[in-house]
Design a binder for these strands. Structure first.
Length: 368
DNA sequence: TAGGCCATCTGGTCCT
DNA sequence: AGGACCAGATGGCCTA
């Protein structure tokens, strides 16, 4: 079909719109698919001409209905199909309006509709996959090179939400083992191993680099940084520093903590601001410290990174969860002035980012 | 080679 | 009517 599409100028824009697909059409795989599609089209054309004989009327009904107002020979029916053949074997006689004859023009229109529908479906699935990629970036195990499968991503995301919810609900310092177990609940063994390995390594990195000491400052009354330090490794690890080729904190498994790779090295102008990159996902610290990733050209400020901690003490007493640790929403970064005033729950913090240049992306991320 | 994962095509259904 | 959404089918790729 593609070869046909490319030879048809009227279809070319529709086809070329999907650049990735169009580019791939040059390689062998796509040529195979082209051939395959040609075969399918041939089969479809045969069936549309009534040669297939296996499709029920309902399978054609939509096409025929769609053609009602366009076809010249609307009154024509395929009597040859609906005659004695319907009683052939055990098949019951077809009901409903009779199949209309597939003229070449009708076949062409049908193909055109199908082509457009395919293109839409492709786009839809690409959007879906894109959203899934975003999700992969915010669950506690992300790698550009070795992606979690779709199903594992969804499972891990569910577990992650659950784990965070439990922490917020209880307001207690969770057990790290229980946390990992919650994260890995229902995951396949390989994914479980990856997640566990990922978290452990990040933890180690953090402990050696001691880049999250500010978080430890808030340790009393809040979850200890050392219990779940991996969330903070995203800034401390040289692998995750701006300019590093490795945008993710690599582990032996090739994974890194959440946000390590979020927008890392995207090269996209909107993410290159030396001032602020902006979070695109909920800061991840299980210990109650919300961390915003900062990337950009190396600078003293950048090296400090922006480490935001959520502390309930900054909240009005009434809004503090019962039994919640005395948490303060603070910052050790250059924007501390901005965020220290923002003693709000997490979602409010993001509202605050309306002033940030990356707000649009942030907002889009959260609402996609 | 079997099984898992994925992209794509396809037809049906629902919604606007 | 057209588009979105969905699920089944199919074939390719990769890995154990």
């Amino acid at each position: 079909m593609l070869t046909r599409l490319f030879s048809d100028p009227s279809l070319l824009p529709e086809v070329q719109k999907y650049s990735g697909w169009a580019e791939d059409s040059e390689d062998d795989e796509s040529k195979i698919k082209d051939d395959d599609q040609d075969a399918r089209d041939d089969m479809e054309a045969s069936e549309l001409r009534g040669l297939g004989g296996s499709r029920t009327h309902s399978e054609h009904a939509g096409e025929d209905d769609l053609d009602d107002d366009m076809d010249d020979d609307d009154d024509d029916v395929e009597d040859e199909d609906d005659g004695g053949e319907d009683t052939e074997g055990d098949r019951p006689k077809k009901r409903g309006p009779k199949k209309r004859k597939m003229t070449p023009a009708r076949i062409e229109r049908s193909k055109m509709r199908r082509t457009k529908a395919n293109a839409r479906e492709r786009t839809r699935m690409h959007d879906l996959n894109s959203a899934l990629d975003n999700l992969r970036k915010v669950v506690p195990c992300y790698s550009k090179t070795q992606k979690l499968s779709k199903i594992e991503t969804l499972r891990l995301a569910k577990n992650y939400i659950w784990a965070l919810s439990e922490i917020l609900r209880s307001g207690k310092r969770p057990d790290v083992v229980a946390y990992v177990q919650t994260l890995c609940k229902g995951l396949s063994q390989p994914t479980t191993n990856l997640v566990a390995g990922c978290l452990q390594l990040n933890s180690r990195n953090f402990l050696t680099e001691q880049q999250c000491q500010d978080g430890a400052r808030y340790g009393s009354g809040s979850f200890s940084m050392h219990s779940y330090p991996y969330q903070c490794a995203r800034l401390s690890s040289p692998h995750c520093q701006p300019g590093s080729n490795s945008h993710a904190l690599r582990t032996p498994h090739g994974y890194c903590a959440p946000y390590d790779s979020l927008y890392g090295g995207s090269g996209s102008p909107e993410y290159n601001s030396p001032e602020y990159e902006g979070p695109l996902s909920p800061p991840v610290c299980i210990n109650g410290n919300f961390s915003l990733k900062h990337q950009g050209p190396a600078s003293p400020d950048n090296e400090k990174g922006y480490h935001y901690s959520m502390h309930y003490s900054g909240l009005p007493a009434g809004s503090r969860p019962a039994g919640a640790p005395n948490l303060v929403f603070g910052s050790t970064g250059a924007r501390s002035g901005i965020h220290s005033e923002n003693a709000l729950p997490y979602h409010d913090m993001h509202l605050h980012h309306e002033r940030a240049p990356a707000y649009d992306e942030l907002n889009a991320f959260f609402h996609n």
